[in-house]
């Protein structure tokens, strides 16, 4: 769906993604944090990056609500998967 909107600065977003990746590597290999803290930080950074890609590179930010709903379709599947895997006692 074509909607009039200001062109996002794709290079700036690429730069942010690059910096976040460097941050991930730095946290993973240099920080010496406890595993649980490390995983939480890495997951947060990963979600941040995924949101940037979805919102800008995949144009979700400029799409109507129904496209948001479509993109959110797999989320229940993620929850089902997590529920079962966590029920394993991990």
């Amino acid at each position: 769906m074509e909607t009039a909107h200001k062109q996002p600065n794709y290079y700036a977003i690429w730069l942010i993604l690059f910096v976040l990746t460097i941050a991930e590597l730095g946290v993973a290999f240099l920080s010496g944090l406890h595993a649980a803290v490390l995983i939480t930080i890495l997951l947060a950074l990963a979600v941040w990056k995924a949101l940037l890609v979805a919102l800008y590179y995949m144009h979700l930010r400029f799409e109507p609500r129904r496209m948001w709903l479509l993109a959110a379709t797999p989320i229940p599947l993620v929850l089902i998967f997590l529920l079962v895997v966590l029920a394993e006692g991990w």
């Binding site: 599947l77 089902i80 079962v84 029920a87 394993e88 006692g89």
Partner: peptide, 18 residues
């Protein structure tokens, strides 16, 4: 089809409740 995958894993040592 999305909520049955564990039937491939009955013998894997999976939680019996599952």
């Amino acid at each position: 089809g999305w909520i049955v995958w564990g039937h491939h894993m009955f013998m894997s040592g999976m939680n019996p409740v599952l």
